[in-house]
Design a protein around this nucleic acid. Structure first.
Length: 566
RNA sequence: CGGGAUGUAGCGCAGUCUGGUUUAGCGCGCCUCGUUCGGGACGAGGAGGUCGGGGGUUCAAAUCCCCCCAUCCCGACCA
């Protein structure tokens, strides 16, 4: 491809709207262009990258035995009503009417459609198991799109669905998908972690996420360097940093704390570390009000709380509710002498401590030397906190680290949630009607290029791994004297690979070098002074700057080798 | 949804507070000519703007007021 007529542009200036390095570089290299909030065009260079990721995904899915199909982007509402998600999905689901007034949605995901399809076709155990996938546009009306293509509203996703007879088949396919994912991400040049995850609104119990580690990531991951334990922060457990207080239980005492409402201010007011304070938070649940008690240095994990309580809906009680219905004072809430008013759920770390400070349920008053068991009794004790830096690994006891990352892939065992609601069942060997066991496996395809850039860049720009680079090499003539030869070389190389660009633009060599490095082309084929003096063509690697000189007779072979093995 | 900010040429910005010689500027980019030509060259000339949209105030509005739209950032209840 000759660059002089290629639809691309580069920019020295950092676009004002871009915060993340990947977003900035993708805009500066002219890979993407924003159309509206969360909507992006992929320009030819960017599209070639995306297309390579798509090919990798397709190859690995096919190898794993999945069959590609294509489901519509626009779906009728009634399927969503059947599955219950018309009401559950919320405002992220974009709904609209056609000219006849029928309701439709722009697909945020395709479980409904695929289950409906499976219900019709997969009626016998003889067909199972089956795995299908598609690479399709999705639309989620995100509250706040951010980071360019990292969190866009319209995005490209690979979603696969498996249909199994039983858990044994399910496990087999789940594992096959998992190793396919490992190959996909490693071919993309991504450094990924597999972590235990929450399945969120999609449903299901077993779930793993593939996280590309990056400080720009939106997700937090807990990991142990010595035994390899890793999990999403929401799900991670730990051995608390301070195990058991050895001190004696002291006399309960009331103290005045005028206007001291937050843990931070209480900590500095009393000159005590946050872990010696108790925070008590009141939730409204379908079982009534629940007081949640945690050490001051931990944050509450609502998902864990929900599970422990076996509650469907929980939300924080408002200040008015706390004051008017419970007669407690916000800022000074505590578990002591309050068991008659509400139940207390207590984090396990609290039970190991002694002589805490807690709210006295009176304005401007706290108790000191509060001891769990003696001064209040919990209704439930469990792990309801987020792991924090400095906690110890639940498996081996080493220090845990909290890191950021980007979710690029997700595996779910969906169970029977969709098959039972949408009537997808099959007849087993015995002639019994049973619901199909489903799995669902996503890859955020259009987010991958951004994740790669996050992990592969330097001050000059992007450094594409060979397999996803938009072009593998660019021929750069540095002067008029070498232009003609560069053209001959281009014509010759064009016959063996369409992965080579020819920078035939009438501009100075410096600009060509800079552009090539910004865009991230792995190899520069430089035809310049060295060619005029020594008859040698230079090949310079983007990654490490290594310079290789070759004669024009050997250039094709050497290039083929480098393009294949990097 | 709450808070903060921004909207002026393809991109990055100044001008707005204090309305009037501003024909609305500057840098990058773009076009022409010449000199350059191995890491974002230089000179000369040139094209490009309904100042986000609508309404209002005024002799006069990019500038003041009202409404709308768009975009970005932070937060979404940790008492």
């Amino acid at each position: 491809m000759r660059l002089s007529h290629y639809l691309f542009f580069t920019s020295k200036q950092v676009p004002a709207e871009a915060e993340l390095i990947s977003h900035q570089l993708m805009l500066r290299a002219g890979l993407i262009k924003q159309v509206a909030s969360g909507l992006y065009s992929f320009l030819p260079l960017g599209y070639r990258i995306l297309d390579k990721v798509v090919s990798i995904v397709r190859e690995e899915m096919d190898k794993a035995g999945a069959q590609q199909l294509l489901l519509p982007f626009v779906q009728p509402a009634d399927l969503w009503k059947k599955s219950g998600r018309w009401d559950e999905y919320g405002e992220e689901l974009l709904r609209f009417q056609d000219r006849k007034g029928s309701w439709f949605v722009l697909s945020p995901t395709h479980e409904e459609l695929i289950t409906d399809l499976a219900a019709e076709i997969l009626t016998s155990y003889k067909k199972l198991p089956v795995t299908v996938y598609q690479i399709q546009i999705k639309f989620r009306d995100e509250i706040r799109p951010r980071g360019g293509v990292i969190r866009a509203r319209e995005f490209l996703m690979k979603d696969a669905y498996s249909f199994c007879e039983d858990e044994e088949q399910m496990k087999d396919i789940y594992e096959r998908m998992r190793s396919a994912y490992e190959r996909v991400f490693s071919r993309c040049g991504l450094d990924c972690k597999v972590v235990e995850a929450e399945s969120g609104p999609i449903g299901g119990d077993i779930s793993h996420e593939f996280i590309a580690l990056s400080p720009a990531g939106e997700d937090k991951v807990v990991e142990c360097n010595s035994c390899g334990y890793s999990a999403k922060l929401e799900r991670a457990t730990s051995i608390p940093s301070q195990q058991v207080d050895k001190e004696d239980e002291k006399q309960l005492e009331e103290i005045e704390t005028p206007g001291v409402k937050s843990i931070e201010s209480l900590s500095s007011f009393l000159a005590l570390p946050m872990r010696k304070l108790l925070k008590t938070i009141i939730y409204q649940t379908e079982k009534g009000y629940v007081g949640v008690v945690l050490r001051g240095d931990y944050d509450i994990n609502e998902e864990k709380l929900k599970k422990l309580l076996k509650a469907k809906e929980i939300h924080l009680a408002s200040e008015e509710e706390v004051r008017e219905e419970l007669g407690m004072e916000v800022g000074f809430v505590g578990p002591v002498e309050a068991n008659n008013k509400l139940l207390f759920v207590v984090d396990e770390t609290v039970m190991q401590g002694k002589n805490f400070v807690a709210g006295a349920n009176k304005k401007d008053t706290h108790f000191v030397n509060v001891n769990p068991g003696r001064d209040f009794s919990p209704y439930l004790v469990g792990d309801i906190r987020f792991v924090s830096e400095g906690d110890k690994c639940p498996l081996c006891g080493s220090l845990l680290q909290v890191k950021r990352g980007l979710e690029v892939g997700h595996l779910f065992n969906l169970g029977y949630r969709y098959s039972s609601k949408l009537g997808a069942s099959f007849l087993d060997k015995m002639g019994n009607k049973r619901p199909i066991l489903m799995g669902c496996y996503g890859i955020g395809v259009s987010r991958i290029p951004a994740a790669i850039v996050e992990q592969n860049h330097d001050d000059e720009g992007i450094i594409w791994p060979m397999e996803v680079a938009p072009f593998k090499a660019v021929i750069i003539p540095t002067s008029n004297e070498t232009f003609n030869f560069s053209q001959q070389l281009y014509l010759k190389l064009r016959d063996v690979s369409e992965e080579i660009l020819w920078d035939d633009r009438d501009i100075s060599a410096g600009v060509k070098f800079k552009d090539s490095d910004l865009i991230g082309i792995p190899l520069k084929i430089i035809v310049g002074n060295t060619f005029l003096k020594e008859g040698k063509i230079e090949i310079k690697k983007r990654k490490d700057g290594q310079l290789i000189k070759v004669s024009k007779e050997k250039i094709v072979g050497k290039l083929m080798e480098l393009m294949q093995y990097g």
